[in-house]
Write a protein that binds this DNA or RNA. Structure first.
Lengths: 126, 126
DNA sequence: GCTTGCCTTGACGCCGGTGACAGGGCCTAG
DNA sequence: CTAGGCCCTGTCACCGGCGTCAAGGCAAGC
């Protein structure tokens, strides 16, 4: 499978695949031309990458998952390194959730206060 | 007050203040030198900007708040434009919170599954 | 041989807020 | 007069995951 076909089947672009390769996530063989040649397994790898990116992982975080898949596991998140990243990310997400909840509360407070002030002004006028 | 003093008092840098000016958030008078001259009110404006940035607003979102303050209001969030931005941002934050909660749940699920698989393998060995 | 469509590498652009320089002017104290 | 400390404008760098264009090779059908 050449890069264009893989991109089409994975729902992404050739640019993206070359970028992943540049960052050590995919390593296709090369034809005599220099053309990249991918096998079927790489399709699953690319899907894993895209799924993890969508969840908010960075390419560096994803590397262990890819290695895990390539080591023959049925899922990328069962290896120790992947689990470590999962734990770290979960912690990050949880603290970010807390911060965001604070922000939400502050915004609600400001909105409430703004509405209240508007009513006061309204009363003063009448 | 010159730019360095304002930066010091606001806990930021001169670079940052010039950047805000470039984006229409602060407009100091100029001395004959060309030096920027700020009055006390600008300090409050800069504090408002930094507070909103810290909450996750962009400079464009902040502009109405600054205008509100400069119009003589005691708080930047009591004017209609500011309230509109507040509502929009609150909605954004809430949807982002939902997405992030989903992510958290997925991460927890993957972690649980990984641990489970490890136990199965452990049982197989013994 | 020419066109078409795939492939290759390389490089710039984006977004947003700031750091960090370069190269120069102003002002004050010694 | 000079040194040091403030100010000015302008520009490059960063981060991350790409989009997009440039300039060129390779394969296949007419």
């Amino acid at each position: 499978m050449l890069i264009g076909e893989l991109a089409g089947r994975a729902g992404t672009s050739t640019r993206t695949l070359r970028y992943y390769e540049q960052h050590g996530l995919v390593e296709p063989r090369r034809d005599a031309n220099g053309y990249r040649r991918y096998d079927e397994a790489e399709l699953r790898v690319v899907h894993e990458i895209r799924a993890l990116l969508a969840v908010g992982f960075g390419l560096d975080d994803i590397r262990p998952f890819v290695a895990c898949l390539r080591a023959g596991n049925t899922a990328g998140h069962v290896c120790p390194d992947s689990v470590a990243v999962l734990r770290r990310k979960l912690a990050e997400v949880e603290t970010y959730l807390d911060r965001l909840a604070d922000v939400r509360d502050r915004l609600r407070g400001q909105l409430a206060q703004a509405i209240e002030e508007r009513e006061i002004r309204c009363l003063k006028i009448h």
